[in-house]
Design a protein around this nucleic acid. Structure first.
Length: 496
RNA sequence: GGGCCCGUAGCUCAGCCCGGUAGAGCAGGCGGCUCUUAACCGCAAGAUCAGGGGUUCGAAUCCCCUCGGGCCCGCCA
């Protein structure tokens, strides 16, 4: 992992080659490689050529050397760039002294530039018949094993760049993640939502019940917190007159890492004035349908992506929170049970929850145990009990319920939306109740948010989407670490 | 936080049960080979067996502790 004191024997070989390059007056880390095209273009120029024939135009390609197969007076090198790989065909007869020089100086893992004309070998492999090749960056560390790649799960996380350079499949997965996020952004834009960039450092992190990270401002000489949600600043923007806003960014929660949770993760939150949670349901359904179609088109080699359009074909299923819970548990009247009976039920379902928790906590546990694992297709769960959801507006017709939906699929929560509370007096009461329930955790009150509501926030709906989980589902990945480029790892002890 | 599992050459892995001088493939070195594509053939080299302690005549192997990682459970409304 960490560099040994003395130079490793394999690195010494490579350093010696580097010095040989310098000794003959060449630069092992040159500044550029002019006229470079993607290897895919050279490959295309090979199509239609008969084996042994050579195309007229010369191409300059650059990338990483993956393997070298020497045959005495000829050699085959595989070059990989962002567009794929291309075989380089080197012949001593054609290259003269440069042939032996190249083979004595180059190693797998090096970044090289090559020039030559397209050809097809007798075995039918599109190739570049090289007329010149130069080192663009010497690799001192050897790359992972060429066939099996980097398997060590710890190294894959700690040195993601090594996994990426060894694995086109891994690069492809992160490309897919990027495409999903871009498509979500394009969708929100097309729906007329303004992208906002709100503050990450706050005096009080709010909008969710989670432990924040804290830090310190030297300038203010005050403690600051990293945001745990995007909700409160975005709603302030509704007060300010923006009618459709969204933000896509990281939030930070001071919690463990596991296969579906990361302390630092990506949220998409959107707030929409003069609309309610039924409107939002439509929006979320359209968004997932669109993103699913996009990944299927762009990443057909991934089975989960290919199946996504069928999985996310509207309309999605919808169930009532209470009805679904009761039918899965095979009994009625659950929502009306007293707290101690709910606690007993939750305990017998395997949950370990503190005694003094409100009824909603136990109802959530029961829902997670009896319902969410059974939802194999995207399903809107509607109208949660008020006790589970302190921040949503009460339901206009169902007593004891709020106007909320969660979108679930395969035990992953893909969206959580409310008709938003905009009554400043009610908001203030709920904040204070939340404070009392959590006194020991020093959840501070964002009194300025209440102040904002006192200026009047239009009726609105809002949604939060856990982008990482959406990516997991769309790509068929079971661990969040596989779709985070740099997941958190415990710092290694420094040697010595 | 609890349980189970893993850590051996730069990389991928054997060896561990049942203790007896640490093995292979890839990569690298040297030699051979002008159509290979996990190229091939020969030779030589490459190890703090995660770290520490213990048991033993003898420990990669058995025991204990520590570090790092994986999976499951719990927590994270």
């Amino acid at each position: 992992m960490s560099a040994p004191e003395e130079t490793h024997r394999l690195e010494a070989e490579r350093l010696a080659k580097l010095e040989r390059v310098r000794a003959r007056g060449a630069e092992p880390y040159p500044w550029a490689f002019a006229g470079r095209v993607l290897s895919a273009r050279a490959r295309e120029a090979c199509s239609g050529l008969a084996p042994g024939a050579e195309g007229p135009a010369s191409f300059r390609v650059a990338g990483r050397l993956r393997s070298i197969r020497e045959h005495g007076r000829s050699a085959f090198l595989d070059l990989e760039d962002a567009s794929g790989s291309l075989q380089l065909f080197l012949e001593a007869e054609h290259l003269g002294a440069a042939y032996a020089q190249a083979l004595s100086e180059l190693d797998p893992g090096d970044i090289v530039g090559a020039e030559g004309r397209p050809t097809v070998t007798r075995r039918g492999e599109p190739s570049l018949r090289v007329s010149g090749i130069e080192l663009l960056a010497k690799a001192i560390h050897p790359p992972p094993e060429k066939h099996f790649g980097l398997r060590d799960p710890e190294a894959r996380l700690r040195q993601r760049y090594v996994e990426l350079l060894a694995s086109p499949e891994s690069r492809r997965r992160f490309e897919a993640r990027s495409e999903i996020v871009r498509e979500m952004r394009r969708f929100m834009d097309a729906e007329g939502f303004l992208e906002a960039e709100t503050a990450g450092l706050l005096p009080v992190a709010g909008g969710a019940a989670a432990a924040p990270f804290t830090t310190h401002s030297r300038y203010l000489d005050a403690e600051l917190q990293l945001r745990i949600s995007l909700e409160l600043p975005l709603k302030r923007l509704l007060v300010g007159g923006f009618e459709r806003v969204f933000e896509l960014g990281h939030v930070y929660r001071n919690e463990d890492l596991d296969s579906t949770h990361s302390p630092e993760y990506t949220m998409l939150e959107a707030y929409w004035a003069y609309a309610d949670y039924t409107d939002m349901r439509g929006l979320i359904e359209r968004m997932y349908a669109r993103v699913a179609g996009h990944v299927a088109e762009r990443f057909p080699e991934l089975p989960a992506a290919r199946e996504a359009p069928a999985l996310f074909r509207p309309p999605f299923a919808a169930v009532d929170f209470g009805q679904e819970l009761e039918s899965r548990m095979g009994r009625t009247g659950i929502l009306e049970l007293p707290v101690d009976e709910l606690r007993a039920l939750a305990r017998s379902a395997g949950a370990t929850v503190p005694d003094g928790s409100p009824a909603g906590v136990f109802l959530d546990k029961l829902f997670e145990h009896y319902v969410s694992p059974t939802l194999d297709r995207p399903t809107f769960v509607l109208d949660h009990p008020e006790s589970t959801t302190p921040l949503a507006k009460r339901h206009r017709t169902k007593p004891g319920r709020v106007e909320r939906f969660e979108l679930y699929c395969r035990d992953l929560e893909l969206a959580n939306a409310y008709t938003e509370l905009n009554d400043p007096l009610e908001q203030d009461r709920r904040f204070r109740r939340q404070m009392e329930a959590r006194a020991e955790d020093s959840y501070a009150l964002d009194s300025d948010f209440v102040e904002a509501l006192r200026y009047g926030m239009p009726p609105a709906t809002g949604v939060g989407v856990g982008v990482d989980r959406a990516v997991m589902l769309l790509l068929g990945v079971s661990s969040i670490k596989d779709i985070l480029l740099f997941p958190q790892t415990r710092p290694k002890e420094r040697p010595g």
